[in-house]
Design a protein around this nucleic acid. Structure first.
Length: 287
DNA sequence: CACCCGTGGTC
DNA sequence: TGACCAAGGGT
């Protein structure tokens, strides 16, 4: 199944800025942080601004973390901005300002988990690592496993399969990783897969089985309305827009339930996303 | 391992 | 219209 997928990728791969050679390892790393749970289309403009402002890890590390949170805009999960800033600081301190090419060293950086470490090593440095993101897991679940969706959490069996399917030589392995991700993103999509355009539809186990619907416990959905996350989002939006420290009363206006509002604000402070001042006002963190 | 963490588009 | 989904990580 490797040849057809890689050939398909050669013809249909999107021209994304972090795939251009000039993006470099730092560009790849920034894109991977931003793409964690955020769609490509919404990442694109923020990515361009980010790289223009902070073309090297050292440039970002030289700024207060709050500037990263502000520049993150509405990408969501703003702790990622904080972690990307912390990763830039660690790269500056531990790696002389250069993004490391070693999987273990990448994994040790803030905000870099198993997926991101493999992705950066593979896409930025051409190294050979199984890259298991939600797209690849879905492709494997269908083509190999014969089921509509992968398990809720990544299993040892999935990791073993990904390792077994990984091509032996480095350049092909990196190509394979990008190709399987792209196939999942463009063709083997979650909702309505485009099997007519799939290069491996003829040997897809799920297709051969008649595309049976997901069977088993319902996949955990995400609720949002009325949660602390929504309140945190509203509070942080006020602070992102502000150019000066914000009085408590301006934050109180975003949510009328005082207990939940206070809990959300406390959480933001605890996470380091918000800095309380001695005079009772709040701002994005300077340290 | 289950849950928490934002935001907006889609069907 | 509301549930589902999007290149996860940390605890």
């Amino acid at each position: 199944m490797h040849r057809p997928v890689i050939d398909w990728f050669d013809e249909h791969a999107r021209d994304l800025p972090w795939r251009r050679p000039e993006a470099g390892p730092w560009g790849v790393m920034v894109s991977e942080f931003m793409l964690q749970q955020t769609p490509v289309n919404r990442v694109l403009p923020v990515y361009e601004q980010w790289l223009a402002r902070w073309p090297r890890p050292a440039d970002l590390a030289a700024e207060p973390p709050g500037e990263a949170v502000r520049a993150w805009g509405r990408l969501g999960y703003p702790r990622r901005a904080l972690r990307l800033h912390a990763a830039a600081c660690a790269i500056q301190e531990r790696h002389g300002g250069e993004v490391p090419d070693d999987h273990a060293e990448l994994l040790a950086l803030p905000g870099v988990g198993e997926y991101t470490a493999a992705a950066v090593a593979s896409f930025a440095f051409g190294r050979r690592h199984p890259v298991l993101d939600t797209n690849v897991r879905r492709v494997f679940a269908r083509v190999v496993g014969g089921v509509q969706y992968p398990p809720n959490a990544t299993t040892a069996a999935e990791r073993r399969l990904a390792r077994e399917l990984l091509p032996a030589d480095e350049p092909t392995a990196a190509r394979w990783a990008a190709a399987t991700m792209e196939l999942g993103a463009l063709v083997c999509t979650a909702r309505t897969p485009h099997c007519a355009r799939c290069p491996v539809t003829a040997r897809c186990a799920w297709r051969q089985a008649g595309s049976p619907a997901h069977d088993g416990p319902p996949r955990r959905g995400q609720t949002y309305a009325g949660t602390d996350r929504q309140v945190r989002g509203k509070l942080l939006a006020v602070l992102r827009e502000a150019t000066a420290p914000v009085p408590q009363r301006d934050l109180d206006r975003v949510w009328d339930e005082p207990v939940q509002r206070a809990r959300a604000l406390d959480g933001l402070v605890a996470d380091g996303l918000v800095e309380p001042l001695a005079d009772g006002r709040y701002r994005l963190p300077l340290t």
